[in-house]
């Protein structure tokens, strides 16, 4: 089953490779991994999308907790949460496609953030699923480049991951 694990860790050199190394050494899946410093610059927040049986997910949580650089771990999938991912798509936009691509972007509540005479760059935010659907909705042959950040997640309401 798909799980989205959120963690706070020391914003230190090597901390990321400790987490990534744990996943490869123990044969766990990583579907996506995002990390950036928090409002406290000494701390980073990481979101990992992974999948596995309940036993594997339990081990992932325990093993992450064992890492000295990892401050606290939360499996967001255990409760209500929100996920967002950012995608930038560069498409060939010429002739009739220009209007069609703009319309699709509007329907998906995206924005065109860069325009050239032959291309659009579209910014789209949403769940992984929504971004997938957008890519399916437009003409595949027009896609020149796709950049996705991987999911970031946060608990709803009072579910807060803080030190």
């Amino acid at each position: 089953m798909r799980h989205i694990i959120s963690l706070l860790m020391e914003n230190e050199a090597g901390a990321l490779s400790r987490v990534a190394g744990l996943f490869s050494a123990r044969g766990y899946n990583i579907e996506s991994l995002t990390v950036a410093p928090t409002e406290d610059p000494t701390m980073s927040r990481m979101t990992i999308v992974t999948s596995g049986s309940d036993d594997v997910i339990e081990q992932i949580n325990k093993q992450l907790n064992k890492l000295v650089d990892v401050v606290t771990v939360m499996d967001l999938t255990d409760g209500d949460h929100i996920e967002r991912e950012l995608m930038l798509v560069k498409v060939r936009a010429t002739g009739n496609d220009r209007e069609e691509l703009k319309r699709m972007t509007d329907i998906f509540r995206g924005r065109v953030i860069d325009v050239s005479d032959k291309t659009y760059t579209i910014e789209l935010t949403g769940t992984e699923h929504k971004l997938d659907r957008f890519l399916q909705a437009i003409d595949h042959t027009l896609i020149l480049e796709t950049v996705r950040t991987g999911a970031s997640g946060i608990g709803r309401g009072d579910r807060i991951l803080k030190l």
Binding site: G14, S17, R18, G21
Partner: peptide, 14 residues
């Protein structure tokens, strides 16, 4: 050294 020993230490420091 920190990279090469990372999978076999409890923790390491440079």
């Amino acid at each position: 050294a920190v990279g090469i020993t990372r999978p076999c230490v409890k923790h390491n420091f440079l």
